[in-house]
Design a protein around this nucleic acid. Structure first.
Length: 940
RNA sequence: GCCCAGAUGGUGGAAUUGGUAGACACGAGGGACUUAAAAUCCCUUGACCAUUGCGGUCGUACGGGUUCGAGUCCCGUUCCGGGCACCA
């Protein structure tokens, strides 16, 4: 018997793969490409736990499978290495973030290397590497110099827009005015916007970085603040981002989340005239947005957002004091308060608007329930059919006019968009005439009424059909140190691009990572941070004269800047002339399979799609969508163990007996617990205070309690992959992580079941050796039984890999190995194909066995076995009445027929002949009532 | 509140997509080997009844429905998870 010495085998082959550059990939026009990508990790100080490699293993299996099928597979890895944790660690310890980041990367790398991935490390990228972020800066400058053409629905050079302005005669002569005008169109632009300001972190945050009014990272309160920031006009791409979802294979839930985030809403903009504050004359118009154009006759008041520019215009002198008081109140409220507390507040402006359909005067109010950032910041209120308007109307005692037949609005609004319209116009009243026409909606359904109103509004120029999107422009600057610097300097206050030939603009050294005393971002501490325009170089900032030497931007880019186009860089990572060559772009196209967590649904996965669409418009990317198929691996939760200490003692009682005592549960390190049985000696050695611990056992064992919690150091439930590799081997780890359940499902880590996978690998190993440790593989013909087992396996495993059902594929391996073992299979032909099949899952043992049976090449290139139906001799046919909409053939059985009688009848039926011709009946199963399954196989 | 996904043994999970529910693995129980332990191997393992052999009844969160046949399809209910949330 030869031992399965996994440790030796794995070290040997990992070294050989590095030496032979087995996983190095180059463009090869003769072979079809397949691009597999994992979301690259942020290298945190805690290192990898067993949850991290889950997605990497899943994609590695697929990569190896595709390679064996003959594809030229790109499977790269890198690091998202700019980010807040390294910076905060730097602030605490004074260590440069680059140092800690690089240390963390090294640690990650050594952990990853032990698991046997087929990454091409020659293509590694790091977002904090100047050779990499040069192209992030380059893309930013391209965005600055582009605008989004609504007609063409794509980005165009800004020069084209300038020409348009010139030909229209609207191009201003003043450079400042030119700048202001272009800023309204550039895709990367400086905007004076309301931002999520986090005082504790000292930076602004993007919408996806804020949840329920606090920062995702750290959980600190976030407030709204108006600031000048770099922004990306991602909202311009709303429709394309929405349409693109229909062309890609992502899960419905992620697509739905993105659709929600984009928030397309089709509606109508309607112009309302308002009366001038001094009297009854026409004061002008303002526009509202509504999705309920059918409810024009139910408007009883108007509401403005407190931040709306109309507020100042429409407030009457008499109401000014009250309005100011209300605005002060609104300003005092934090984002969080506004989000949680929905009490009705508001104030009357004193002005009135004229309803364009009824001609009636509606009071104009101000309330914080109307948002400045959506639509026009002003609404028409229809309390009968909108619950928010309803609450407002009831609170301030405003009228409610129902517009739908049968709707009872005495206690709540009727919000459903269905029913027959009434009161439009109300009985005895008339609708305002436009060119001899007036709008009458009575008797129509809601949907018909919306369509009719839209048409009327357009025809008579009262408003227009409008599509609104909830998606906001991305705020693109951060007041941090550890990020990409902007390649921008300020010349007389105007943002100017540092010439592209001078990129990258390298992150300067600072001696302090905190904001400056004057409140500037950390880059304000950099001494060498000014742009000498004439000499085209970075110089000391004391030389700033605003004539030839100018200050450089102090903001840095956010985390998503570097992660938005990294998949393109992997295609051509060392190119210093371009982000990537045309040739590489055309060969690798886009990512065929992307694997990563669903928590990036509204962050990275939207930003990347936007960024790629922009690069596609430029002709840099060849595909409109970056990631064709997306698999979201589930999170691995921790499984914590507990011991129960009897109060005020150092005695611990086993789980089954704990109710007899007054105990406190204490987290215990899961690494000293096996199958929920505590290693009591290891426990005593774990911490000094437990060295004299006493135990009350049950059946001689100490049984621990358990709970599913987040994997974290403080709960002592972190399982380190290195430990598993050491104890069971990388192949067992790979197999077990996949065996745990479907890749896409979140599940707790539980080391308990791992023995099963390890036992399987040993059984597989033993298939090849006899008692004396000699190879027992022979070149004789396989038996029909052997071939049947093999081809059943080929069929199952191939189908399972394609659908990422790795857990069932592994089950199939277990069954097949048991079968081959009991069949005494020695056939080289069968065993060789078995190795090929297992190679993606357990590459080390496969490589060892592959060479042991006499192969010289790497198992990574072993051809994927071809399934042949003819070896699966049994097939099943069913005879009976119509089922599942398909007719095999119709046959009536008497209600009281016994299964035997039904079987006989079915077999003797003339229609059965074509199924039975040349077949031998293996068995018949009569399912009660009318169905007979007949298993047949071809006659020998 | 709205949208999405789900609920199967003691546990993780299978089920050819409407055709013998519980594959595979863990755990548990029993046995073999062993001075002993570990490792390994064999048997049992959804529940209940019958066990002298066969076997029988009930079972996929709950209540209905469609069907010869439902874990799977339809309607309603409960519960858990995820997303959005004053978006007019």
């Amino acid at each position: 018997m030869r031992d399965y010495n996994f440790s030796e085998i794995e070290k040997k082959w990992q070294a050989r793969w590095v030496q032979d550059k087995t996983y190095h990939v180059i463009e090869d026009p003769k072979r079809r490409k397949f691009y597999i990508l994992n979301m690259f990790p942020y290298p945190s100080g805690a290192g990898l736990h067993v949850g991290h490699p889950l997605g990497y293993i899943a994609s590695d299996i697929y990569a190896r499978f595709k390679r064996q099928q003959g594809f030229n597979v790109l499977n790269p890895m890198g690091y998202d290495s700019y980010g807040l944790p390294a910076e905060q660690y730097a602030i605490q310890t004074g260590q440069h973030p680059q140092k800690t980041t690089f240390e963390n990367i090294d640690r990650y790398r050594s952990q990853l290397d032990k698991i046997g991935f087929s990454f091409d490390w020659d293509r590694e990228v790091r977002t904090c590497d100047p050779d990499y972020y040069k192209w992030t800066q380059w893309a930013f400058q391209k965005m600055f110099n582009s605008y989004f053409d609504q007609q063409l629905q794509k980005a165009q050079p800004i020069e084209k827009l300038i020409d348009q302005f010139k030909s229209q005669g609207t191009w201003p002569s003043d450079p400042k005015a030119q700048n202001d005008l272009l800023m309204k169109h550039r895709i990367a632009f400086l905007g004076e916007t309301m931002v999520n300001w986090c005082p504790k972190l000292g930076t602004v945050l993007a919408n996806d970085e804020v949840v329920e009014g606090v920062s995702v990272r750290g959980g600190y309160p976030v407030e709204q603040k108006k600031m000048r920031q770099w922004c990306l006009r991602i909202s311009a791409y709303s429709q394309r981002l929405l349409d693109g979802l229909d062309t890609i294979q992502w899960s419905d839930s992620i697509k739905e989340t993105q659709r929600n985030w984009i928030g397309r809403s089709e509606g109508t903009e309607v112009e309302f005239h308002y009366l001038s504050p001094d009297g009854d004359s026409d004061g002008g118009t303002f526009t509202i947005f509504t999705t309920r154009a059918d409810t024009m006759f139910g408007v009883t008041f108007m509401v403005l957002a407190p931040e709306s520019e109309l507020v100042a215009k429409l407030t009457t002198p008499a109401q000014k004091a009250q309005v100011d008081q209300y605005l002060a109140y609104v300003k005092s409220r934090t984002e969080r308060e506004r989000m949680i507390d929905h009490t009705v507040t508001g104030v009357f402006t004193g002005s009135y608007a004229i309803n364009p359909f009824t001609g009636e005067k509606n009071p104009i109010w101000i309330s914080e329930y109307v948002l400045a950032g959506y639509g026009t910041g002003a609404i028409m209120a229809v309390p009968a059919h909108d619950s928010r308007d309803y609450a407002f109307a009831r609170h301030f005692n405003l009228p409610v006019i129902p517009l739908i037949q049968g709707a009872d609005v005495s206690t709540e609004s009727y919000d459903a968009k269905e029913g027959i319209v009434i009161n439009s116009p109300a009985q005895g009243k008339t609708s305002v005439m436009y060119d001899g026409e007036s709008l009458v909606l009575n008797g129509l359904t809601v949907q018909q009424a919306i369509a009719a109103t839209k048409q009327f509004v357009q025809k008579h120029n009262i408003g227009r059909v409008k599509v609104n999107y909830r998606l906001r422009d991305a705020i693109f600057s951060r007041q941090r140190y550890w990020g990409e610097p902007f390649p921008v300097y300020y010349k007389n206050g105007i943002a100017t691009m540092i010439p592209a030939e001078c990129l990258p603009v390298r992150l300067p050294q600072v001696d302090n990572f905190l904001p400056t005393e004057s409140g500037e971002p950390p880059l304000g501490n950099a001494q060498l941070w000014a742009w000498d325009e004439a000499n085209r170089q970075i110089v000391d900032k004391s030389l700033i004269d605003e004539k030839t030497v100018f200050p450089i931007e102090l903001y840095t880019m956010p985390g998503f800047a570097g992660s938005s186009a990294y998949y393109l860089r992997y295609m051509d990572p060392h190119n210093d002339k371009a982000l990537l060559s045309r040739q590489a772009a055309e060969y690798w196209q886009n990512v065929d399979l992307y694997v990563g967590g669903s928590e990036h649904a509204t962050g990275h996965l939207i930003y990347s799609r936007f960024w790629n669409k922009f690069l596609f418009d430029l002709g840099v990317s060849t595909q409109d969508e970056p990631f064709h198929k997306l698999i979201n691996q589930g999170m691995i939760q921790g499984r914590s163990n507990f011991v129960y200490r009897i109060k005020d003692t150092n005695t611990f009682v086993s789980l089954g007996l704990k109710d007899q005592y007054d105990t406190t549960p204490i987290h215990v390190d899961v690494n000293i617990v096996r199958n929920d049985i505590l290693d009591t000696q290891a426990f005593q050695a774990w911490r000094p205070e437990y060295s004299d611990a006493q135990f009350i056992l049950e059946d001689g064992k100490y049984v621990c309690g358990w709970a599913i919690e987040k994997m974290s150091k403080s709960m002592f439930n972190v399982v380190n992959p290195d430990m598993i590799v050491e104890r069971y081997g990388a192949d067992t780890l790979r197999l077990y992580e996949m065996f745990l359940g479907p890749v896409e499902q979140s599940k707790p880590w539980d080391t308990n079941g791992i023995d099963g996978c390890h036992r399987f690998l040993r059984k597989l190993w033993q298939l090849f050796w006899d008692k004396d440790g000699n190879l027992q593989v022979q070149d004789n013909h396989p038996t029909a039984e052997n071939l049947k087992t093999l081809h059943k396996l080929i069929k199952k495993v191939t189908a399972d890999i394609e659908t990422f059902s790795y857990n069932t594929a592994i089950s199939a391996f277990m069954v097949a190995t048991t079968e081959l073992s009991s069949q005494q299979c020695r056939s080289r032909q069968v065993l060789e194909q078995l190795i090929s099949l297992i190679a993606p899952f357990a590459p080390h043992i496969a490589e060892e066995l592959w060479h042991a049976i006499g192969n010289q090449t790497t198992v990574c290139d072993a051809p994927w076995p071809q399934f042949d139906e003819k070896y699966l001799v049994e097939s099943s046919i069913r005879l009976g009445v119509q089922f599942n909409g398909k007719v095999r053939f119709d046959m009536q059985f008497p209600a009281d027929a016994t299964p035997q009688q039904m079987t006989d009848m079915a077999l003797s039926a003339p229609e059965a002949a074509k199924y039975l011709d040349g077949m031998q009946i293996v068995k018949t199963i009569a399912i009660p009532k009318r169905i007979v399954n007949i298993v047949v196989k071809p006659q020998a």
